[in-house]
Every structure is written in C-alpha cells, then in structure tokens.
Amino acid sequence: MSNYYIHKLADVQSENIGCNTRVWQFVVVLNKAVIGKDCNICANVFIENDVIVGDRVTIKNGVQLWDGLRIDDDVFIGPNVTFTNDRFPRSKCFPDKFPITTIKKGASIGGGAVILPGIHIGEHAMIGAGTIVTHNIPSYAVVIGNPIRILRYTTK
C-alpha cells in the first residue's frame, strides 16, 4: 500500500515518491527521478531520470523537467514553464553531462517562463510569467521580461 496518490492514467516508473504526493493524469516520471513529500504534480508533466524535486513543490500543467534539474523545497512552477538542459542542442548529439539547474527554496516561476541550462535561481526569488531567464537570479529578487530585469526585492 503506497502513501501517495498516482492517477490511473499516469506512468510513474520511479519508486522514489514521497508520502502525500499527488501525481495526476498523463504524467510521466522516469525510474531514477526523486520526488519529495507533499508535492502536487499536475496533468501533462514529464519528469526525466536525473531530476530531484524537494518537498511541498507544486508543478502545474504542461511542464517538462529534464536531466540536471534540482528543485528545493516549497517551490512553485507555473503552467507551461520551459526548462532547457543543453546549451548547444543537436539531434542525436548529447553532452557528456547536462548542466545542473538549481531552483532554491521558496522560489516561484510564473507560467510560460523559459529557464536556460545551468541557471541558479535563488531562495524566494519570483520569476514573472513569460520571463526568459538567461542568467542567475539572486535570492529574493522579483524579475520580469526579456531581457530580464529586477523589479525589486521581496522579504519572502
């Protein structure tokens, strides 16, 4: 008997799913992925093998988490956020190792944002919807746009 919920239309190959996590329909989780407790993985999410998701993370619909992604606790990822993991992608040509992208504790990423490979998003940073993140974001920064700009800093 598991202590998490997996929708009957999800394909979850990993056994590393934390208690009270909910995985909804049309989600695919590959076998080496690690997902923490109390997470909500919404419909149409794909999670690759070399991905670690912390506790109490919300991943909204239409997000793909590619190899090299590290998500800390209490992170919110809005609908259709796009992560990338290859700086110079070519068909059938893979890097020896994918860059590590880190999303630190309490960060929020608005819907439709694009996160380039190897980026570090600091604690409690807030990324506006549609923002294209091309460089590291400091903790507590509120950022928007393309090119990205810091609007202000938040206390949490």
Rank of each mutant, 00 (worst) to 15 (best):
3 N>S: 15
5 Y>G: 10
7 H>V: 05
9 L>C: 10
11 D>V: 03
12 V>R: 02
13 Q>L: 08
15 E>A: 13
18 G>I: 01
19 C>L: 06
20 N>S: 10
22 R>A: 14
22 R>P: 01
23 V>T: 09
24 W>G: 05
26 F>R: 12
28 V>H: 13
28 V>S: 13
28 V>P: 02
31 N>A: 10
32 K>S: 11
33 A>H: 06
35 I>R: 00
36 G>M: 01
36 G>I: 01
36 G>R: 04
37 K>C: 07
37 K>A: 12
37 K>E: 12
37 K>V: 00
38 D>T: 02
40 N>C: 09
43 A>L: 06
44 N>T: 10
44 N>G: 10
46 F>S: 13
48 E>P: 05
49 N>L: 09
49 N>G: 05
50 D>R: 04
51 V>C: 01
53 V>D: 00
54 G>M: 06
56 R>F: 00
56 R>D: 00
61 N>R: 14
65 L>C: 10
66 W>D: 02
67 D>R: 06
67 D>E: 03
68 G>L: 02
68 G>R: 07
69 L>Y: 04
70 R>L: 00
71 I>P: 03
72 D>R: 08
74 D>F: 11
75 V>A: 07
75 V>K: 05
76 F>G: 01
76 F>N: 01
76 F>M: 02
76 F>Y: 00
77 I>S: 07
82 T>S: 15
82 T>M: 14
85 N>G: 04
85 N>L: 04
86 D>F: 04
86 D>K: 00
86 D>W: 03
86 D>G: 01
87 R>K: 07
89 P>D: 05
90 R>F: 08
92 K>H: 11
96 D>G: 12
96 D>E: 13
97 K>Q: 09
98 F>A: 01
99 P>E: 01
100 I>E: 06
101 T>C: 10
101 T>F: 11
101 T>S: 03
101 T>M: 10
103 I>F: 09
107 A>W: 03
107 A>C: 09
107 A>F: 07
108 S>C: 13
108 S>K: 13
109 I>L: 12
109 I>W: 13
113 A>T: 03
114 V>A: 07
114 V>Y: 12
115 I>K: 07
115 I>G: 12
115 I>R: 06
116 L>R: 02
116 L>D: 02
116 L>H: 06
121 I>Q: 05
122 G>C: 12
127 I>Y: 11
127 I>T: 09
129 A>Y: 13
131 T>R: 11
131 T>F: 14
132 I>K: 12
134 T>I: 11
134 T>H: 08
137 I>S: 11
137 I>F: 06
137 I>Y: 06
137 I>G: 05
139 S>K: 14
139 S>Q: 14
141 A>N: 13
141 A>Y: 09
142 V>R: 07
142 V>I: 15
142 V>D: 09
146 N>K: 15
147 P>T: 04
147 P>M: 01
149 R>P: 05
150 I>S: 08
151 L>A: 08
152 R>N: 14
153 Y>M: 12
155 T>Q: 11
155 T>F: 11
155 T>R: 10
156 K>I: 12
